[in-house]
Design a protein around this nucleic acid. Sequence first.
DNA 1: TCCATTGTATTTAAATTATAATACAATCCT
DNA 2: AGGATTGTATTATAATTTAAATACAATGGA
Lengths: 113, 113
Amino acid sequence: MEFDKSRPIYLQIKREVKERIVRGEIKEEVPTVRSLAMELGVNPNTVAKAYREMEREDIIGSWVGRGTWVKDGARERLCPDMIKEIVDEFIHRLVSLGLSLDEIKKLVEGVND
Amino acid sequence: MEFDKSRPIYLQIKREVKERIVRGEIKEEVPTVRSLAMELGVNPNTVAKAYREMEREDIIGSWVGRGTWVKDGARERLCPDMIKEIVDEFIHRLVSLGLSLDEIKKLVEGVND
DNA sequence: TCCATTGTATTTAAATTATAATACAATCCT
DNA sequence: AGGATTGTATTATAATTTAAATACAATGGA
């Protein structure tokens, strides 16, 4: 995973972990703060900050000495929420360029690859 | 225009100005550094930084005492470039959630409002 | 019980971003 | 000619983000 320099790393880590949960790569046990920090090449504090926010969002739960775990039903809540957020932002950005909803639909229909 | 606190303001200003160019709201004359800073409620230095980068991208040209102007053909170059960037990121993000291209197309087809 | 692993917290430092206050040279308009 | 406006540059300051190095208490396994 590579980072976009224009946005805080901890936000990108949040997105990455959520994506892994939605994809089913993370089912119950979330990587430890230290192991994910090592894997991503960042400071454990940065991962801890991402986890702290996701805990407040009721996506994961952390316990000292045990680790971090996906909360019950988190994947089912996360999936439609994230899709809606992505689609909404996509539509909004193209509308900001002056495109209509019909034009946007035709644009996506024509995508190949 | 309101700012997203999670990203540098000067980058959001770049996007805003580019959108205005594509929408045709800015045709030739770009707002002065000071007037846009006043309009957006930010420091002139922040606008100047955005303009400086757009000048390096050959989108605008600035002259002391005269102002800032859209470069010839900038709108025609900007329009397809920005659309492609937005669509590509959109597809990429949904693929990162595990969706296929077909699923994405059906998703967009079903959008209302 | 002992020890490694866990999340959490603290402190210090560096880099980036944004603001603020000027100053300056070039240009334009009257 | 002269004054206002322009982009640009400089310096200083503050806030945010990230890194780094620790330390600590709780947990679990040998």
